[in-house]
């Protein structure tokens, strides 16, 4: 009798406890991060976010381990060898920020064949057996024009600052901006320069083209270049246009100064380096047996006039604005794709 009671009690406890222990299925699973490069503030923030979120997950028993590996040199052959080592080390899932979209496919295939879940993000891999968390750069470009169309219904002349020539990200954001301008013909791009996602390059380029331009209503950018553009406009003593910002700390700080001084209004779009944590949760969900689409789209980070202060506060000096994702966020992204 007592044994029966005990059994019943334990079943009751188990059924009550289950909803809380959401990831008991993955408690013994080990996830590895294979990263190809750690040499800039964005990648550093990405690794810090990974560290922070996965440490919590490990201490809560969601997963057994979540180790980060970075190759010593940013080379595809080295990362391929690293992935093969991770297979040997018996990880259940490998999260990859890849040095090349194609050159790792052989190693990724080996991992899939060994029954390992492979999730790629930011630098994605094309091997069909892997999951991809891609950024919708085109939407990022288009959203800038949409914001401007709302802010200035009469339209005006735009200056476009592009990124590094020949890189696919630059092409995609540019395509988004063009699509936005086509939909809102009241805007006209009167000039374009390459700012290489760097303040100093952007400042030089904008200063060079400014004398030949009519009055500029707004500057559309790709991130990392907004502060330099603002400096160029200030130096040329031209009226300050609406400059769309990225997520660097100096851009946000300048925006805040202007906002306090004269009520300057703009917005910021960027990719949060915390996308690594989204990839972590997606891998965890797949290990948990969830049905997840192979192609996922990561939302970009948008900062507006009213949440500027909050974001600036969370951003380290010289760092980048960031968002870390939770399990619920990941489930939302997965649900959106299904």
């Amino acid at each position: 009798m007592t044994i029966k009671k005990m059994l019943l009690a334990s079943i009751a406890i188990a059924s009550v406890a289950t909803p809380f222990a959401v990831s008991a299925e993955t408690a013994d699973k080990r996830i590895a991060l294979s990263n190809n490069y750690a040499g800039n503030s964005w990648r550093q923030a990405m690794l810090t976010s990974w560290d922070k979120i996965t440490k919590e997950a490990v201490s809560q028993g969601t997963v057994a381990a979540a180790d980060a590996f970075t190759t010593a040199e940013n080379q595809a052959t080295e990362q391929a060898a690293q992935i093969q080592n991770l297979i040997l080390q018996g990880y259940d899932a490998i999260v990859i920020n890849a040095a090349s979209p194609t050159a790792l496919n052989g190693a990724v295939k080996e991992a899939c064949d060994a029954g390992i879940v492979v999730v790629s993000f930011d630098g994605i891999v094309t091997e069909p057996c892997a999951w991809r968390i891609a950024v919708d750069f085109k939407a990022m470009g288009e959203s800038q024009i949409e914001y401007l169309a709302e802010k200035m219904p009469d339209g005006g002349s735009l200056l476009e600052i592009r990124g590094l020539a020949g890189v696919s990200v630059d092409d995609e954001i540019h395509a988004g901006i063009q699509a936005g301008v086509e939909k809102n013909p009241q805007f006209k791009i009167v000039g374009a320069v390459n700012g290489d996602w760097a303040q100093d390059v952007a400042q030089r380029a904008v200063a060079g083209i400014l004398p030949s331009l009519p009055e500029i209503a707004a500057v559309v950018t790709q991130g990392g270049d907004g502060y330099g553009a603002a400096q160029a406009f200030a130096a040329a003593d031209r009226p300050m246009p609406t400059i769309v910002m990225g997520n660097r700390e100096d851009e946000l700080r300048w925006w805040k100064e202007q906002k306090d001084a004269n009520g300057y209004e703009t917005m910021s779009v960027s990719i949060a380096p915390g996308v690594s944590t989204l990839a972590f949760w997606v891998a965890q969900q797949i290990l948990d047996g969830k049905d997840v689409e192979k192609e996922l789209v990561v939302p970009f980070l948008r900062i507006d006039q009213d949440n500027l202060e909050a974001n600036l506060e969370n951003t380290e000096k010289g760092g980048v604005a960031n968002v870390e994702y939770s399990l619920e966020d990941a489930q939302k992204v997965i649900g959106g794709a299904n």
Partner: peptide, 17 residues
């Protein structure tokens, strides 16, 4: 041999060699 392992190539695939 390298392409046989990686299944595809890029222009910087073997710089370390």
């Amino acid at each position: 041999a390298l392409v046989g392992l990686t299944t595809s190539a890029d222009a910087n695939i073997a710089l370390r060699y």
